[in-house]
Computed example of a mutant assay.
Amino acid sequence: MTIQINGFCDPRFAAVKAAFENNFREHGDLGASVAITLEGEFVVDLWGGHLDEERTQNWQEDTLVNVWSSTKTMAAMSLLLLADRGDVDLHAPAAHYWPEFSQNGKQAIKVRHFLSHTAGLSGMEEAVEGDALYDWDWMINALARQEAWWEPGTQSGYHALTQGHLIGEIVRRVTGQSIGNFFQQEIAEPTGADFHIGAGEDLDHRIGNLVPPAQMLSPSPGSIAGRTFANPRVDPTEPRKRKWRAAEIPAANGQGNARSIVRAQTAMANGGTAFGKSIMSEAGTKRVFEKQAEGMDLVLGVPLTFGLGYGLNSDLTPISPNQNSCFWGGFGGSSIIVDQDARLCFSYVMNKMESGLLGDPRGFGLAASMYASLQA
């Protein structure tokens, strides 16, 4: 099977292009994109494959897809930007900015707990029925009423869908803007990132459908993981719906591709500056590495180290040979790496989903090829 690969690849990173081509031959990729910046300049920007399983439509240069939890890095970056400006104190109680949040014993939960999945609110207590997931006020009011499921700050438990609402409500209370609008104005537009949290109908012709994984994870129903994924329960085909795309679900419904993710996140790898624009201070980007939690995650069931908004490179998750590196990924396979030591930013985005929540061999193989290229 011959797949046409389009775009640009610096000869130094030829191994990345080879790994990308191999994903189609050996790992069943359907349509995908991979992008890398080094020292703030693109060295890889590739795309290829198809939008449909029948292979009748090609993945285009400007194709967008739902990247699931890779969206979380955009929400986190938005809050880190406000902290960098002095508008938010990450160590302050969340209720300082959102008074209603203090209900049911949550007065001591701090803003930083939202960024590190340690707030104890990994799922929803009240049943999320009908279109409640798309109703921002309903979601944040239900979270404000809820009691934490474990002692906040003591352990991480992946806030699969709730993290974006928790972070987003702080952004809204401080700026008066929805997080989708804030991100668009303060990060996406200055960096030229074609990434959207809340996508208008005008983008529908560019948004490709995801192909659901062959199998889904099924955690024990009574566990924290089971409760997290059961409510709200989101079907992998939900992103095909206009109401999903239109809503702001900052933990899960960002529409983008590898290039747009890298455009937005490059500033985090380069001292706060990207493509001629200063987004935040270098100190502001380094706050990612303030370790917040380490050990077995209550929801994902794997050992993780969390900083402020990103997973951290560690012996538990060795995603880079460089210490000051962070990462995240999305349900089905999308992934992001921000390496401040190498001043490197990487992303892989695809439409054919696998069952993993934090990446899979397709993205890992591309990242390994990238680091091998750097060391050659």
Rank of each mutant, 00 (worst) to 15 (best):
G157M: 02
T237L: 08
A367Y: 07
T191K: 09
G28D: 07
F346S: 06
T191M: 12
S335N: 11
H196L: 10
M353G: 08
P236Q: 09
F229W: 11
S156R: 12
A283Q: 15
E290L: 12
H113Y: 02
L133R: 05
N209P: 07
P250I: 13
A144F: 04
K291Y: 00
D360Y: 14
S373R: 04
A148Q: 11
R55P: 03
Q103S: 12
A376L: 04
D341Q: 14
A247E: 12
S122H: 06
D235I: 00
E186Y: 06
G48S: 01
E39M: 01
G271H: 14
L46D: 09
P219Q: 10
L344N: 10
L133Q: 08
M74Y: 05
R206M: 15
L366Y: 01
R240E: 14
V262A: 11
T56A: 07
L121P: 06
T285N: 13
L121Y: 04
I140Y: 04
E189K: 05
F183G: 09
Q215E: 13
P239K: 01
G168T: 14
N6M: 04
W138A: 13
S116F: 04
F8N: 08
Q155N: 12
D235C: 00
S281R: 11
D135F: 01
A283S: 14
K106E: 01
G363L: 06
H91D: 14
D315R: 15
D297W: 08
S223E: 07
P11Q: 01
L374N: 08
D84A: 11
D89T: 02
L298E: 07
R25Y: 03
G365K: 05
H113L: 02
N141T: 15
Y310I: 02
L143T: 10
R263Q: 14
G28A: 06
V171T: 00
S122R: 09
N66M: 03
Q184H: 15
L90A: 02
F229L: 15
F8W: 03
E54R: 07
I109Y: 00
T37E: 10
E186P: 05
P93Q: 00
G168K: 06
D204M: 12
L51A: 14
E125S: 14
E126F: 04
V349L: 09
I249Y: 10
W47Y: 13
G198L: 08
G130T: 11
M77H: 04
L366D: 00
G222C: 02
H159M: 09
D45W: 01
Q107N: 03
P219H: 11
V174W: 05
T317R: 13
A76M: 07
I197A: 07
L82Q: 03
A368G: 12
A267V: 07
L121Q: 06
M77K: 00
L304P: 01
H91R: 13
R242A: 15
D194I: 11
G31E: 00
L374R: 03
D341S: 09
D202R: 00
T162M: 08
F331E: 02
I140T: 15
P93A: 04
P303G: 09
T56M: 07
G295S: 10
Y310V: 04
P213T: 06
N58A: 14
L308D: 00
N6K: 08
H96A: 11
I179V: 15
T162E: 06
S69V: 02
F101L: 02
G48Q: 02
F289E: 08
T73D: 04
M1K: 13
N270M: 13
R145S: 12
V349I: 13
G359H: 06
A372N: 11
K243D: 15
